[in-house]
């Protein structure tokens, strides 16, 4: 088993075997989470700080639960309400926290690259819980685990990522991960929401949704991030739903056993028809949430092992 990372900042630095390692460990945590006694002591004695510079309920609670189930002391800091408002820089905030000796730092930040910057300045393991439009690695990993469990494999699948690709870090992490695992990735959306240079990354880009969904194994919907819209990307929500909302007619172009995914929270009637979202034969949206906790437990467990190993080596005087 190989997982050599000090931090989990994105999918880009990961080797395919490292991705497989995380998913394998996560599988075991899925089993644990389904038992009455859900505790492990993988993070016993460790301190996890969740620093969210951007609003989040789902991701933050998923990380919090994951940490608690592994026996860590978990602290949540809502950074919007705190020192940022007083003019403290990101680096000063990082140094302040670092002085409290946390072992795991879970960070979400509205600016791309901010988590990388922070990771340079602290001694603990840093997990990126989403930075700007850059990456959201645990989301891609939980999506991968969901696909692997539903489809029995994570390679040679045809996967359509649909919607607001431009503003989505979930899409970026997913297309990198799925590409690394040798799948065909299609991007489907209005051209105003598809960023430049995507075909150079090996993705196929479709502006017509029915064409884009033809014979795919997985349909991955994205939230239309209204709060990120400068305005003017699409004419209206209803036109968007008509052309790019996932309904039964469009889904009929995918393979009969294609699964439907959504990172949540959903805008029913904007990007996805409620009946599709609730169809237990097609939708794996609830599984995604379940896998989220397991994947985050796995990621933190693996990072903690590396952290302990490097601390032990340092104690024995070995240069690391």
């Amino acid at each position: 088993m190989a997982f050599r990372q000090k931090h989990l900042l994105g999918i880009e630095p990961l080797h395919p075997t490292e991705i497989t390692t995380i998913l394998d460990v996560a599988d075991s945590y899925v089993d644990l989470n389904r038992q009455a006694h859900k505790h492990s002591d993988a993070l016993k004695g460790m301190t996890q700080i969740n620093m969210f510079f951007e609003n989040s309920t789902r991701t933050q609670s998923s990380f919090e639960l994951a940490g608690k189930r592994l026996g860590a002391d978990v602290m949540n800091m809502s950074m919007q309400a705190s020192s940022i408002k007083k003019g403290e820089t990101l680096i000063d905030t990082a140094l302040t926290l670092n002085a409290m000796h946390p072992d795991l730092l879970v960070v979400r930040h509205p600016h791309s690259g901010a988590v990388d910057l922070l990771a340079e300045k602290v001694n603990c393991a840093v997990l990126n819980a989403g930075d700007g439009r850059h990456e959201h690695p645990t989301q891609a990993l939980l999506d991968a685990l969901t696909i692997r469990r539903a489809k029995g494999r994570l390679h040679r699948l045809s996967i359509a990522i649909c919607g607001d690709i431009a503003h989505s870090r979930v899409a970026r992490s997913n297309l990198i991960l799925l590409g690394k695992m040798e799948n065909r990735v299609r991007l489907v959306g209005p051209p105003t929401l598809i960023p430049a240079g995507m075909t150079e990354l090996g993705c196929e880009v479709y502006e017509d949704m029915e064409e884009g969904l033809k014979d795919v194994d997985v349909v991955m919907m994205l939230r239309l991030q209204k709060e990120r819209m400068d305005g003017g990307f699409i004419p209206s929500e209803r036109e968007y739903f008509h052309r790019y909302g996932l309904d039964a007619a469009k889904l009929a172009h995918a393979k009969p056993d294609a699964i439907v995914m959504h990172p949540g929270p959903m805008n029913r009637g904007v990007e996805i028809d409620g009946t599709i979202a609730d169809d237990i034969n097609r939708s794996v949206i609830q599984e995604q949430v379940e896998m989220g906790v397991a994947v985050r437990m796995a990621a933190m467990d693996l990072l903690a092992r590396n952290l302990r190993a490097s601390k032990n080596s340092a104690d024995q005087g070995i240069m690391v």
């Binding site: 791309s112 700007g132 439009r133 970026r172």
Partner: peptide, 11 residues
């Protein structure tokens, strides 16, 4: 500058 690199970095 827009392009593959900018899209990957999310800038």
């Amino acid at each position: 500058t827009s392009g593959k690199f900018a899209s990957l970095r999310g800038l």
